[in-house]
Design a protein around this nucleic acid. Structure first.
Lengths: 201, 201
DNA sequence: ATAGAGCAATGACAGATGTCATGGCCACGT
DNA sequence: ACGTGGCCATGACATCTGTCATTGCTCTAT
């Protein structure tokens, strides 16, 4: 029996996945959580073998949760499940020690197989996405550029971003300018969109 | 036996929901589609009683699909299921003739009940969301303002938007200015975010 | 040790953006 | 008939952005 932990902030999806996986004779859902920062405790107390982690979660995102599991509970393997096939997500998930990566538009029948592969110590990675990940490559942004762009993502002015980041306005403009150049965008808003689509955040 | 149609672009979620609902003795999933524009045909040929429609779908969104069902196949009732509890979505869904509206973070146990209510001719609406919908109210934007803001949403310049909308640059700036004022935003990007969050698109 | 890369800042400048006043056109309700 | 309000446009204006050149500091790799 493979013992499963489900982590997804959408209760309906979480419950539905549980129903789907419980249909398999060799799988057993032993814990469900709706927040990333509850994953570690739940995995420990339920002695889960595999954790299905959504990327978008409150508290702690699925990738960070995978890293925490790797560090604190290496016996429990991670399978990251996500809505968005952002190439950067895959790379970061694997870097964080996840054993598998599945997007939510893969057929339902393949999920159980992915779980079994991960449990067996193999990798389970969407091949199409792996190619895209290589094609897009790693983020061209430096850490500060990323940070400033993330702060600008919700539409604030340069002055607001500068205040939040404790930087001068000119510096913020320089970083944004660099980010716009590196992403190939023509405006700040477009740069935000491109960075988000690629999972560079 | 209540005959169900599932429409969701994420195959994994669709399959999982099917597994969940098939566990109920009185429910039967008779059709599944991944695109909004396949809903009508599938509902007709499967003689579905209730259609579960995701809002975010390629081809035709779930709300438009609900409207089409209402018009062409009034025997089939619609239950809109969505990731985002955008207040505007609820209003538009009900206007389109949907009988129910459920967000994806409601507990899984309640979904089957919502389906039964809708099948019985009752409404199934998230009460919390109904309140939010009334509080936020309808979109303050005029049709042109909405349109221009939507075109500006992906980060293009004023000149690009003007070209796409066949308007002068000055007019575009005026509409954007009006939209910024009405949404209470300070920049164009923020206005886009606010409008999207409220489902005003 | 030396060159390269990231980080932080300043100043200057062209161009884009947001605001406002104004005008004309049309449809609608009273 | 009249006012109201949405729609389209123009022009002017202050401000905000995006770009570039330049400087200085710190690490890191060669």
């Amino acid at each position: 029996m493979i013992r499963l932990l489900l982590a997804d902030d959408q209760a309906l999806v979480r419950g539905a996945l549980a129903a789907l996986l419980d249909l398999e004779a060799d799988l057993e859902v032993v814990a469900q959580v709706g927040r990333g920062d509850e994953v570690l405790d739940a995995a420990r107390s339920s002695a889960a073998d595999v954790a299905l982690l959504d990327v978008e979660m409150p508290g702690l995102d699925g990738i960070a949760a995978a890293a925490a599991l790797r560090r604190e509970l290496p016996a429990c393997r991670s399978l990251v499940v996500t809505t968005f096939g952002r190439p950067g997500y895959l790379r970061r998930a694997l870097d964080a020690g996840a054993s598998g990566f599945v997007v939510k538009d893969t057929p339902a029948e393949q999920l159980a197989d992915a779980v079994r592969r991960v449990h067996a110590g193999l990798r389970a990675v969407d091949p199409e996405l792996a190619v895209a990940s290589l094609a897009v490559g790693a983020s061209p942004l430096t850490e500060r550029e990323r940070h400033v762009l993330a702060l600008a993502a919700d539409g604030g002015t340069v002055a607001q971003v500068a205040a939040e980041a404790f930087l001068s306005e000119g510096t913020v403009r320089n970083y944004l300018s660099a980010a716009i150049g590196k992403t190939g965008a023509r405006t700040r808003a477009e740069a935000v969109r491109i960075a988000q689509d690629n999972g560079w955040l």
